[in-house]
Simulated scan of single mutants.
Amino acid sequence: MRKLLWGLWVLVAFSACKKPEDASGSPAGVVDEQAPSAADSVVEAGPYPVTKEKLDAYVGYQRRMLEVYGSLMKGLQNLGALVDAGTPEAMAAAREGLKVVEAKAKAEAEARREAQLSEADVNGIAEVVTAVISQRQLGRTLQYEEELKKLEALQAKLPPEQQQGMAPQVASMRAQVEAFQTLADARRAHGDANVDVVLTREEDLIQNYQEMIRVFTGTRR
């Protein structure tokens, strides 16, 4: 149970939103970023417009963050045991480990700057990418297309009256396959243009998605 709770804590640390900072300046060690532009404000009014250029930059940003998260996981892997030890020395070592988490925010800012993406860009693109790639990955995992082919082949071998009995089941499976193929939900939420742009880098994005899972599960080589 402790390991599970510790894993959840790490995930929360990764996904936590940045708190608004005081207007007087950034804390020491945090890389300053440009203030949100008028274009960033417009993004909030509707679906973020994903362009091919920004998507390509985002793919590179993802790959950079894979290395950041990999280093972060290594730096935190013994932190739970140190906290459990409870000794002053262990707690001091744990505080050193938490500096790795602080370094993550700086690394993210640097990766965004290298990719020439703002925080609004990253968040906007990530929302569309997640909607598209998670559905694609789920479709591959569940293998609905293969299951549909098997179901249709079975139906074809049955007598006509039994084929009719299977028709609703086949139709339901076909609708699920179509939903994964057309990405209807993602298109409604983010627009056809955004989804079509993301699909131009589908294989790269799925690879990054799978690599990130390996990072968090400790199975990445």
Rank of each mutant, 00 (worst) to 15 (best):
G25K: 12
L183F: 00
L138N: 08
Q155H: 05
H190Y: 08
G46N: 08
L82R: 03
I133V: 14
Q77M: 10
A184S: 15
V198A: 00
S172C: 09
L142S: 03
D40E: 07
A107E: 09
Q34F: 06
E152C: 12
Y144C: 09
D196G: 04
E119I: 14
S172H: 12
V198I: 07
G70N: 06
G218P: 04
V197I: 14
E203T: 13
A120C: 09
A109K: 01
P88D: 08
A111C: 12
I213E: 02
P36V: 13
A16M: 14
L55R: 00
I213A: 08
R112F: 10
T217F: 02
R221L: 13
A193S: 14
V83Y: 01
V177Q: 01
I206L: 15
Q137S: 12
V42P: 04
L117F: 07
V129D: 02
E89K: 00
S37R: 08
V122I: 10
Y48D: 00
E96H: 10
D84C: 08
L205S: 01
F14T: 00
W9Q: 10
V177F: 06
A13G: 10
T217D: 03
M212K: 03
D56V: 12
W9N: 10
M166L: 15
A103D: 05
G139L: 03
L72Y: 05
V30F: 04
E96P: 08
G80H: 01
A45S: 13
A81H: 03
L72Q: 02
A94E: 08
A193G: 08
L142I: 13
A167T: 06
L158G: 06
L142N: 02
L72M: 11
A35C: 10
T217V: 11
L76M: 13
R201N: 05
R220V: 13
D32P: 09
A153R: 11
R188G: 15
Y209R: 01
A175R: 14
